[in-house]
Amino acid sequence: MKIIPLYDAPHFADQVVDWLWREFGDSLPRDFFASIIAHSQRPGQLPLTFVLVDEDQLLGTVGLWRCDLISRQDLFPWLAALYVKESARGQGLAGQLQRHVIEQAKAMGFQELHLYSACRDFYERFGWRYIGDGLDYPDKTVHLYRYSCGAITE
């Protein structure tokens, strides 16, 4: 298994778009997610999308984005759109994807990362610190997290 930038495996782009649209789309059109993915494939620049592959099978994806929550544009950058294929869950792949983005953020000189989630008690076990609630469009309360890129926690 390996985690690579999507720009090194562009044939997975449509599947990543479908996953994000299905999991995070709510009322947003598929084209919205296609635009995000299309613009997150430039080496060394945010936003970036990564994929976890096993030989030629796509198992998961995650993004390192400038902004993932429009109401909190003061926070930067974000671990975003973490998704693991249902049949591959329970194998620690979400943790591998998180660690990869954390390492990428550190390599790019960022001191901290942010994310938001509707659930609690998942990200804390990977070292994320709950920092309060936020508001997702149009009126959904979400939980905000911060990760200090100084050390990776299992």
Rank of each mutant, 00 (worst) to 15 (best):
L115D: 00
V84Q: 04
Q41D: 06
T49Q: 00
W21R: 02
G92Y: 02
R66V: 02
R66L: 06
I70V: 05
W65V: 05
D121V: 01
Q98C: 13
T153G: 12
K85V: 10
T153A: 15
L59Y: 10
G44C: 09
Y123R: 13
L82W: 04
L20P: 01
A38F: 01
R125D: 15
F122P: 02
Y123I: 09
Q73A: 15
L113D: 01
W21A: 10
W21D: 07
L93T: 02
F24D: 00
S117I: 06
C119G: 04
L75T: 03
I4S: 04
K2A: 00
C119S: 09
R120P: 03
Q96C: 09
E86W: 06
Y83I: 09
V17Y: 05
I3M: 06
V16A: 09
D14V: 13
Y130C: 10
Q98L: 11
C149V: 13
R120M: 12
H100V: 07
L52K: 08
A105S: 11
K106P: 03
L93W: 08
Q73W: 13
I70K: 09
V101D: 05
D133T: 14
R129E: 14
L52C: 02
I4R: 01
D121F: 05
G63T: 13
R22M: 08
L69M: 10
Y83W: 11
A38G: 09
V53N: 02
G109P: 05
T141R: 15
I102L: 15
I131V: 13
Q91R: 12
H100S: 03
D133G: 13
H114T: 02
A9Q: 00
L115C: 06
D14W: 01
E112G: 03
I4G: 03
G95C: 08
L69C: 11
R66W: 03
L115H: 04
C119F: 05
V53G: 01
P10W: 02
V51C: 00
G109T: 15
R99E: 13
L59T: 06
R42I: 07
L115P: 04
D56E: 12
E154F: 08
A34S: 10
A118F: 12
D31P: 01
Q41R: 15
L20R: 06
L69R: 09
H100I: 07
G44M: 08
L93Q: 04
H11L: 10
P5M: 00
L115W: 01
T153L: 15
V142M: 10
D31G: 01
G109M: 12
Y130P: 03
W78N: 00
T61P: 03
D18E: 09
S40N: 05
R89Y: 09
G150M: 14
T153N: 14
R99D: 14
W21C: 08
P43K: 13
Q104T: 12
D74Q: 14
H11G: 12
L135V: 14
I3L: 04
L113F: 07
Q91H: 11
D139V: 09
